[in-house]
Design a binder for these strands. Structure first.
Lengths: 228, 228
DNA sequence: ATCAGTTTATGATATATATCAATTGGTCGT
DNA sequence: ACGACCAATTGATATATATCATAAACTGAT
């Protein structure tokens, strides 16, 4: 019926639109915009008005806030399935954080007002959004606590395992972020991130080829992540 | 009509039930249970099944998770108006954190299934819950970032200002938590929390009478909170 | 091809924080 | 009143992390 939502790989449709009537889908699909971003492009800029409901179709992004002194704190890395604009989209009028593509990314953007209309008229859809949002914020909060309880080496191990297990599912991967960004994520200095990586390399736990990482001793990394 | 929801001071009713029909209110009020807790009582225990939607009517609580090594990490202190069970209530079947009263507290507990039914049937109610939840998780996330970017003294200043501004609205107040709990909240050791407080006292910024704190130099505290 | 700027890297040192030890005072239960 | 346990405190010391300086490798723009 509606050409515009015939995206083969759109999990958004599969996940949430099961319970939305075709009328409602039609109205959403009419205003739907797909956008492509290159590495380094802003998807969301802190402070800007929230007018869209943004779903990450492909790629990888970082969520971060910029402090008064221009320093950045990275909250989380988000991959497809995640609603990158979900955190404050229903409570604020302006974004309190930025989202930037760290790999080539595609988003599907819906008008926030259209989404709100459907929430108001469709309880099942509202519940799905509520569950998804609850999941996303839960994950961000837990992530932050997990990082906080570790020391430098534990944090680095945790980050490497995060990329290994949750993002690339492979012992060999290209780090999509700089050492500086890892530092901004775990709340330590760039130098110490580098030192910890070097240490892991010297201990034979990982191999480093510039941005590429190979995890050699997975179990040791798990151990480091668990006990400093 | 329904005696049981005639709680004079129930902001829950005022805030959210404006848009709920009296039928729906009736059904909720029928199953509503009010509970009292003393300081130190568990309101929610990590790992237990989620069966209730819990609203804090009065008092003060702490949200925390207990790690495998029995150490606690405090996420946040919540005061009335906050939905203490809100964080994972719609995404998980079991609580991933605990909530404990740190002052005498009263909660109003509704069956989670009743609340879900209303969400399904009432879009405006769903939207209100969504907004509230978005606000709560936003606040917890921002709090965590705020703490993370400060050093010891900055964190202590931040905590004192939090109690001063957000909880007691008074330069003189009784700390509802131990030094150890402050440490668990800001992610530093108890000894260093004490040392920082002592330092502030020696510098004439605060006065300490056991658990009671008097803020003498508010501006210096703000300065410390902003620039280490 | 070159320059400027950034990223990665390493070392020396300063600083912040944790750990360990010891003391005091309070609280709880018996 | 007693002992057992915690909370708060302070000092000495160890450890972890940040800061500062330097340099090589890389990146992008002209």
């Amino acid at each position: 019926m509606n050409q515009e939502c015939r995206c083969d790989k759109c999990e958004l449709k599969e996940l949430f639109f099961q319970n939305v009537s075709s009328n409602e889908i039609m109205s959403l699909c009419g205003s739907r915009i797909e956008k492509n971003y290159n590495k380094g492009d802003f998807i969301i800029e802190q402070g800007k008005q929230i007018s869209e409901f943004i779903y990450l179709k492909s790629g990888l992004v970082k969520l971060f806030i910029t402090n008064s002194d221009d320093k950045e704190q990275i909250l989380s890395f988000a991959k497809p399935f995640d609603f990158v604009s979900l955190l404050s989209v229903f409570s604020q009028t302006n974004y309190s954080y930025s989202v930037m593509a760290i790999e080539e990314s595609t988003t599907c953007n819906l008008s926030i007002n259209d989404v709100k209309k459907i929430i108001l008229s469709n309880g099942q859809f509202a519940m799905s959004i509520l569950e998804k949002m609850s999941n996303v914020s839960d994950a961000v909060i837990k992530e932050s606590l997990q990082i906080r309880k570790r020391n430098l080496r534990g944090r680095i191990a945790y980050v490497l395992l995060h990329f290994r297990d949750d993002i690339y599912d492979n012992d060999y991967f290209e780090l999509p972020v700089s050492r500086k960004e890892i530092a901004e994520y775990i709340g330590m200095t760039t130098e110490n991130v580098i030192r910890a990586l070097t240490e892991f390399r010297k201990d034979g736990i990982i191999k480093i080829f510039g941005k590429a990482i190979e995890i050699v001793e997975y179990k040791k990394l798990v151990q480091l992540s668990e006990h400093g």
